[in-house]
Structures are given as structure tokens and as C-alpha cells.
């Protein structure tokens, strides 16, 4: 009898905890994670709301959790280092998550870098394609990539073996890198759109998958000056004494160049909010406001200090008004 009572007590405790929740739950991209946590922390300090719980699940994993349904047991916000896919939007819809507010919060530059004392690289996206694609077009036909030295790719590059450390396929950084550098490079090398989409990263050891930890890539680069690495801009920013970024299409990866869009390999960062949870879970509106505030993503904002590259004025005001009016996605957006 006693045990039954105790069990019932535990069950009710669990149930009540699952029902009511007074902190916002955020899941998603590990690229957005440092910015999202910074905002969450400030939001917790400035307001009377609880500090949101932020989980780094990866963009895909986060959107999957986000789209699982409406209710306190599902997250309220999903961070993503790419735009939501049509498939995911449909999944959301079929699970009753119909009203989604879409907010673009800034950019992230993807940098190819090497140790600070190693020779400087000035790459074009075509060079990147030729160095890293599994198959490359040569004199009009596709052949497995046989380049093993940068000098073969482009005579103007330093003579050193092609060895590049980068994120695994599960990473949003990898997705973006493939799309923005590799596929664009393939287009520049004369492939058509459909062919470029098929381009894959070579798997013969020239591209070394190094996990999602960018710190690890940075320290490996420092130890081995012959290698190049792919990582997010914020890591270049924080480790400028140890590594340097390669120029891409003649543009250096600097804050200004990424913000102005001149640096070609940069991607959009987003977050998605369930409108159905606004008013149920306290503080969601205020959190969104905080994220798009001057304090966070203004010129000296704390998220900007963490390496986020903010939106241009007019785009920012567009998303600010979307947040203010709680404009939801219509489903007619041009999603992939």
C-alpha cells in the first residue's frame, strides 16, 4: 500500500513537471548555440523569466524535435544554421505545428585556415572544388580526383599536399561548405546545375573528418603546418594568434567582409518559434525581442562579440517587424 502511494506520488510529480514548464526550451544548431546561450543568459538576467534551457542537437536534430508536436514536452524554439527544409516544414504541419515564426538572426562565415606561420592561401571556389571533390572534370570528362598537391590544382598555390581537416557530414557547417564552396566551385569549373548538385567530398584521405569540435581542428592545425582546416569564423576570431584564414576569391575572411556579403562562403543563421507556445510558455516574445535587440546584435552587441555577424539594417527591421507582428510562415516560401 505504502509503495503504491509512493509510486503514485512520484508519477504525479513527474506528470505535473511535464505539464507545466516555466522555462523556454531551445534546441538546434551547434553553430547558433554560443549566440543563443549568450542571449538566453542575458534574457535571464534582465527579466524575471527563468533562463531558457539551450540544447545543441545540430540543426537537423533540433528541427526534428521541434516538429514533433505542440505542448510543453516539445521545445519552443529551434535554432538552425540553414533554412528549414520543405520536408521538415511538412513534418511540422502533419504534427500540428502549423504556425511557425521564422527569424533570420545573422550570418556565419566558414573559414579555410592554416597555422599562422604557414604559407598564405588565396583560393578560388574552383580551386576548392578541384582539390576536394570526389570526381573532377578534366578536359571535358569526369575522373576520380587525382590531385594530391595544391600546386597541381592551381600553379599559383603553395606546393604542399592537399590535406584538409573538416566537419563530418552530420554537421551544418559541412552542408553549407558543400553548397557554398564546393558546388559553386563546380559551377565555376563548368558543370551545370544538376551536375554540381551531385558533387561529393572526396573520401581518399585528402579530406579528414575531424568531428564537430572546432577547437580540436584549430589545435591540430597549430601542430601540423601542412594541413588546412574548415571551421566557423568565431574560432578564427578567437584564435587569431594561432591560425589565419585563407582568402577566398581574393577576399579575406574578416568581420567586415562577411557582414557585407563580400566573403563568398557565409551562410544564414535562423531560429524558428512555435506561435502556439507564445502565451503558454512565459517569455518567448521577450526572448525574441532580446535576440533582435541592439544589445545583442547591434554593433557592440554581446552576440556580435561572440563572433555572430549581424544582419544589414533593412533585413533586420524586416525580421523585427515579423517578430512584433508574429508573422507566421505561409508555406509558400521557397524552401528546399
Amino acid at each position: 500500500m505504502k509503495t503504491t502511494l509512493a509510486l503514485a506520488a512520484v508519477a504525479s510529480l513527474v506528470a505535473s513537471a511535464a505539464m507545466a514548464r516555466d522555462e523556454i526550451r531551445i534546441v538546434g544548431s551547434s553553430t547558433v548555440f554560443p549566440f543563443s546561450t549568450a542571449v538566453a543568459e542575458q534574457f535571464g538576467k534582465k527579466t524575471d523569466f527563468e533562463t531558457p534551457v539551450v540544447e545543441a542537437t545540430g540543426s537537423g536534430g533540433g528541427l526534428k524535435l521541434f516538429c514533433a508536436g505542440i505542448g510543453a514536452e516539445h521545445p519552443d524554439i529551434a535554432n538552425s544554421s540553414r533554412r528549414i527544409k520543405q520536408k521538415e516544414f511538412d513534418l511540422c504541419k502533419s504534427n500540428g505545428v502549423k504556425d511557425i515564426i521564422e527569424v533570420k538572426l545573422g550570418f556565419d562565415g566558414i573559414v579555410i585556415g592554416n597555422a599562422i606561420d604557414s604559407p598564405a592561401f588565396d583560393l578560388s571556389r574552383k580551386d576548392i572544388y578541384k582539390a576536394l571533390a570526389a570526381d573532377v572534370a578534366q578536359y571535358g570528362r569526369m575522373a576520380p580526383n587525382a590531385f594530391d598537391n595544391w600546386i597541381q590544382v592551381n600553379p599559383a598555390l603553395p606546393s604542399q599536399p592537399i590535406e584538409i581537416l573538416g566537419p563530418p557530414p552530420t554537421s551544418g557547417t559541412r552542408d553549407a561548405f558543400e553548397e557554398l564552396a564546393l558546388q559553386k566551385g563546380a559551377r565555376a569549373a563548368g558543370l551545370d546545375k544538376a551536375e554540381a548538385k551531385e558533387v561529393e567530398v572526396r573520401s581518399d584521405g585528402a579530406y579528414i573528418e575531424s568531428g564537430e569540435n572546432d577547437n580540436l581542428i584549430v589545435s591540430k592545425l597549430e601542430a601540423d603546418p601542412q594541413k588546412l582546416g574548415i571551421f566557423g569564423f568565431s574560432f578564427l576570431d578567437q584564435n587569431a594568434d594561432r591560425i589565419k584564414g585563407a582568402m577566398i576569391e581574393g577576399v579575406e575572411p574578416t568581420f567586415e567582409n562577411i557582414a557585407s556579403g563580400e566573403y563568398p562562403v557565409s551562410r544564414d543563421l535562423w531560429f524558428y518559434v512555435k506561435k502556439g507556445h507564445i502565451g503558454v510558455i512565459p517569455g518567448i516574445e521577450e526572448y525574441m525581442d532580446e535576440f533582435l535587440s541592439e544589445d545583442a546584435i547591434g554593433e557592440d552587441g554581446y552576440a556580435v562579440e561572440k563572433g555572430l555577424i549581424p544582419l544589414e539594417e533593412d533585413e533586420l527591421s524586416k525580421f523585427q517587424s515579423a517578430v512584433a507582428n508574429q508573422t507566421v510562415m505561409t508555406g509558400s516560401e521557397d524552401l528546399h
Partner: peptide, 17 residues
């Protein structure tokens, strides 16, 4: 199960984050 997360609050019981 979501314990790899950024959580600033100190848990007061076994059901807190």
C-alpha cells in the same frame, strides 16, 4: 535525453532541468 544543454539554474529536485 537532453542533458547536454546550457542550463544556468541550479536544479532543486530530480525533475528540474
Amino acid at each position: 535525453i537532453g542533458m547536454v544543454a546550457f542550463i544556468t539554474a541550479v536544479p532543486e529536485g530530480i525533475t528540474d532541468s
